[in-house]
Each structure stands twice: as structure tokens, then as C-alpha cells.
Amino acid sequence: MRTRALLVAALLALAGCTDPAQDGGGPAADGGATGTLTVFAAASLIDVFTELGARMEEEHPELDVRISYSGSSALATQLVQGAPADVFASADETQMARLEDAGLVTRAELFAANRLMLAVPADGSAGVTAPDGAGIPSLRDLVTGDPTMAVCAPEVPCGEAAAQVLRAAGLADVPDTYAEDVRSVLSLVELGEVDAGLVYVSDVHAAGDAVLAYAFSESARAVNRYPIAVPSGAPNAEAARAFVDLVLSDAGQAALADAGFQRP
């Protein structure tokens, strides 16, 4: 029995050992991008970049786009450790600066901005009072009790922003759990396991009816600006450049605006 369990474990481990970027691309006969394009993107970008990735594959039929979503700081650590990515899109400038310090990125371009909202389950929430409609309330006006609250861990960009607004509102000791990325916070609110969570405006757009969200004044203190760059040593730099151009193009900016992102 135990041998069989070990065997299964070994097989599972082996199955995980695939190289995300085995084949780099080269210029195709028609000048379009080919091969595999590997994009590392902040978790908050999951909806827009999945859409833009599909558009990219449509425009370049011989290109295979693979996108890895995670907390920006986890992705930055992977890149510094030598993960082969063609594009890195971070949720703040701090994480991009880590790559610049490591000599992996020389030119990063800002392509979006995002700020925090207070998300609550649509079917009610203890400790949070809905705004009365007169102007934008402060976080203090909204958090009237002691709700079970999830925010991002201070290690990731959304957590840094959350810590800033909570400090500004004098609510630093309210959170009950620090999630590893912003989409985990959103999931906890959607599941109704927490009364409130601090997520980005763009996440609220993605959540739909399960979640209500309130804007609050302190969020202006912590606006995250999103940089994008092609790291040096990108296996498929040509396709990477085309993807960055797409994100910065009017079409890309429109898709980001639709998803709730602001201009940088």
C-alpha cells in the first residue's frame, strides 16, 4: 500500500516537470511571430491578459501563448532565479525595480493603474456599513464593526497598498488573514468566508454579482502603477515585443479600461 502511494507521488512529481519555454520562436516566412510566448503576469491581470493572449494567437496562428499568473513578487523571484519568460507584467513598480536591479530589465513601460476597493459578499456582511451615497466615504466610515477581513500579504503589491490604506484609516489590526495574491482575497469574499476584503477595482469587475464593492477615499493614497517589460534573455523576444505593443495599443488599453483598470 505504502509503496503504491509512493509510486503515485513519484509519477505526480514527474508529471509536473515540464519546461514552460522549451521552444523559442524565430521569424516566420510571413514576418509573424511563431513558437511559444511565455508571459509572467500579476494575478490581477488574469482576465485581460487571457483575452489579449487569445487575440495574439489569432493574429499569429503559429504562436502559442502561455501565461503564468501569480503574485508579482513571486514572479519576480522566479525571474531573478532564472525562469525563462518573454514578458513580465507587474502590479507595481517595486517588483519591476527588483528585475532592473538584477540587470534583467533595462526599459519598462507603464500600461495601467489600479486602486483598491472594499469588497463584501453580496448577501450581507457583518461589521461593514454600506455608504449613504453622499460622496466617497472613508474606509473608517465603511468598517464600523470588526469584520473578518482578508487582505493581500505585505509581500505582494496589493498587500503593500492595503497596508498603506489601513494605516491611513487607523485600521491596521483589522485583517484576519493575509492571502498570497489578490485573487485569493476575492475568492474568500465570493465564498462568503470573510466579511470584507481589499481588492482592486479591476477584480470587482471580474467578480460579477457575488460581490459588492465600495470605493473609499484612502485608496487614492495607494494607486498601483503596472509596468511591463521584456527581460533580457527572453527566449522569444520578437513575439514578446509584439505582445507588449498590443498591450500598449489602443485596443489593449480599451480592453484594460473595460476590465476596470485606469490609465497609468
Binding site: G71, A74, V80, Q81, A153, E155, V156, E180
Partner: peptide
């Protein structure tokens, strides 16, 4: 360990 790796390896 997991979270520290994201900021300070």
C-alpha cells in the same frame, strides 16, 4: 518560508 521567498530570498 513561501511568503519570505517573494520578498527576501
Amino acid at each position: 518560508v513561501y511568503l519570505a521567498l517573494q520578498r527576501d530570498p
